[in-house]
C-alpha cells in the first residue's frame, strides 16, 4: 500500500502526459485542457485555503486580469506570447499584493469580504473598460500561444503546454508545502497565536501565499485567453470565484491532490453531455442548471461531514491495509 501511495503521483503524471495518445477526440482534449486551466488556479487556492486557511471569493478576477493582460499584450502591443504570459502573471501578482497588504493585516473575515468586493468591482471593470477589454462583446482575435517559432494550435499541443505548466506548478507547490513555508502555513491555519509565538511572520506568509495564488490565477487566465482565442467578461464573475472556492473546499485542507481531484471532477461536470455518450442534452442541462446549488450544498456538506474533504478520504484510503 505504501508503494502504491508513493508511486501514485508518477502514475498520474504518466497518464496525464499520455493524454493525447489515449484519445484523438479533439473536443475531449479541449475539455481536458480546461481541466488543466482550472487545476492551475486550484494549486494556488489549495495553498491559500487548504494550507494557510485564507478564504478568497475573488480569484476569478485574477484569472480575468491575466486573460485581458495577455490579450492586450499580444493583440494591441504585438508582443511575443511569452512576454504577455509573464506580464499577465506579474499584473495579477501586483493586483494580489495591492489587495492583500491592507486586508491581511486585519483579522477574521475581512479578507473574504475584501476579495468579494474586489471580484465584483473587477467584473464590472471588465465590462466598463470597453476601449481596453472590448466590454460586453468581449475581446476576440487573440493568437494561439507560441514560443520561439512554434505555435501551439493543435488541441494536443495546447493540452501539453497547459499540463506542462500545471506540472511545474504542482511540483513547486509540493516542494513548498513539504518544507518550512508549508509548515508555517499550516501553523497559521492551526493557531495564529501559536504561530506568532513560534516566530512565524504570519502577515508575511499570508501576503506571500495570496500573491502566489493570484499569480497562478493570472497565468491560468493568460493561457485561457490564448487557448480559446476569445475573452468574455461573463467568465470572470464572483460565481466563477465561488466555483473555484468550491473545488478547494471540497478538495480538502492540507493537500494538493484532493483539490486537484475536485477541480477535475467539477470541471468535467460542466461538459457532461459531451463526455457521456447517450446522455440526453436535456438531462445534462438539468444537471448543469443545478450546478451552483450543488457547489453551495457540497461546501456545506463537506464542512459539516468531512471537514478534510477529498484529501481526508484519500488519506483514509491510503491507510487501508496499514497497521
Amino acid at each position: 500500500m505504501r508503494t502504491v501511495r508513493a508511486l501514485a503521483p508518477y502514475l498520474v503524471a504518466i497518464v496525464v502526459a499520455a493524454g493525447p495518445f489515449l484519445t484523438d477526440d479533439r473536443f475531449l482534449l479541449k475539455v481536458l485542457t480546461f481541466v488543466g486551466l482550472n487545476a492551475l488556479v486550484i494549486v494556488g487556492l489549495a495553498l491559500l485555503f487548504g494550507f494557510a486557511g485564507q478564504v478568497s471569493l475573488g480569484h476569478a478576477a485574477f484569472v480575468g486580469l491575466g486573460a485581458y493582460a495577455s490579450a492586450v499584450c499580444s493583440v494591441r502591443f504585438g508582443w511575443p506570447w511569452i512576454v504577455g504570459f509573464i506580464a499577465a502573471g506579474s499584473l495579477a501578482a501586483l493586483g494580489g499584493l495591492i489587495l492583500a497588504l491592507p486586508s491581511l493585516r486585519l483579522k477574521g473575515h475581512y479578507l473574504a469580504m475584501a476579495t468579494l468586493g474586489f471580484g465584483e468591482l473587477a467584473s464590472l471593470a471588465f465590462v466598463e473598460a470597453e476601449p481596453v477589454t472590448g466590454g460586453v462583446d468581449g475581446f476576440s482575435g487573440i493568437p494561439f500561444p507560441s514560443i520561439g517559432g512554434f505555435e501551439f494550435r493543435e488541441p494536443a499541443a495546447l493540452y501539453w503546454l497547459v499540463w506542462a505548466i500545471v506540472g511545474i506548478a504542482v511540483l513547486l507547490a509540493t516542494n513548498l508545502t513539504a518544507l518550512r513555508p508549508g509548515r508555517a502555513m499550516r501553523a497559521l491555519h492551526g493557531s495564529e497565536l501559536g504561530a506568532l509565538a513560534s516566530g512565524v511572520d504570519t502577515t508575511g506568509i499570508k501576503v506571500r501565499v495570496f500573491v502566489l495564488s493570484a499569480t497562478l490565477a493570472g497565468l491560468a487566465g493568460a493561457l485561457y485567453a490564448s487557448v480559446v482565442g476569445f475573452v468574455s467578461p461573463s467568465v470572470f464573475t464572483v460565481g466563477s470565484s465561488v466555483t473555484f472556492l468550491a473545488m478547494a473546499v471540497i478538495g480538502g485542507t492540507g493537500s494538493l491532490a484532493g483539490p486537484l481531484v475536485a477541480a477535475t471532477a467539477l470541471t468535467l461536470v460542466q461538459y457532461l453531455d459531451a463526455l457521456i455518450p447517450g446522455i440526453s442534452r436535456d438531462t445534462a442541462r438539468i444537471v448543469q442548471s443545478f450546478q451552483e446549488d450543488v457547489y453551495g450544498m457540497s461546501i456545506v456538506l463537506v464542512v459539516l461531514l468531512a471537514p478534510r474533504g477529498v484529501s481526508g478520504l484519500l488519506k483514509r484510503l491510503g491507510s487501508v491495509g496499514r497497521p
Binding site: R180, R183, A184, R186, A187, H189, G190, S191, L193, G194, A195, A197, S198, G199, V200, T253, G254
Partner: peptide, 19 residues
C-alpha cells in the same frame, strides 16, 4: 496554542525554524 493537524514533532519544528 498547538497546531492540531500537525504532529508533535512538526509543531516543535515550526519553533525550530523561527530564525
Amino acid at each position: 496554542q498547538l497546531f492540531d493537524e500537525m504532529t508533535a514533532h512538526e509543531n516543535v519544528m515550526v519553533g525550530a525554524a523561527a530564525r
